[in-house]
Design a protein around this nucleic acid. Structure first.
Lengths: 103, 103
DNA sequence: TTCATGGGCAACCTCCAGGTTACATGTTGG
DNA sequence: CCAACATGTAACCTGGAGGTTGCCCATGAA
């Protein structure tokens, strides 16, 4: 469960969420292409993409002199599992609270 | 959607996740009680609880000389909505990718 | 070959998260 | 009233996140 923290941390930045959304809507893109949609520099975006990559949310591959960034499908399932587990735990806590209040 | 970033950021710390889990399993607790389960100081935990509180994930109330911390149920739903929305967006991206690969 | 372009690399800056220690405040029980 | 205990407050430290600029390297096109 502790593995979830870096994943959430990667999601906990507006710019990185924006990158994910951009890759969702526009498909695989180049850093330079992406940087035209954001206010920060290309290098800053590269750092953010590295963070997302370390979290396994994104993947990159070289094609000629370009580097293509895309969403990492397999990791998305893992993230979903974490999210489901956490919310289920919360639901159980709510159930316990409800039971407690009704007793 | 940009509102989701602070929420994920609040979740993006192992200690804070631990606090949430502890409050899930043990119910409402005092900072001092909680601090017996963690390696860090009481003041550090207070800061983490403040972060969780700012994110709306946790709520506190004074009872005499003690302050009781508990999960905030209403905000949990909001978090779930964000998570669902994000994963749905991802699923749609996967569908588009799948469609693209099959075409 | 040459040059324009995409990207990596490195140095640097600033700010704040996360942690500590020390001390002040408030409340409860005897 | 006073001692003990839970908490609030403040000052401080350190590392790293997030950003910038400048420069170098590789590659593709003319």
């Amino acid at each position: 469960m502790k593995d979830a923290a870096p994943l959430f941390a990667a999601l906990g930045d507006a710019t990185r969420l924006g990158l994910l959304v951009a890759l969702c809507s526009s498909g695989p893109l180049t850093v330079t292409r992406l940087s035209s949609k954001f206010a920060v520099s290309r290098q800053a975006l590269t750092k953010h993409l590295d963070v997302l990559s370390d979290a396994g949310l994104v993947r990159s591959s070289r094609q000629g002199r370009e580097r293509i960034w895309e969403l990492e499908p397999r990791r998305l399932g893992d993230a979903h599992v974490y999210l489901e587990r956490l919310s289920r735990q919360w639901d159980e806590a709510l159930d316990r609270l409800k039971t407690y209040l009704e007793s």
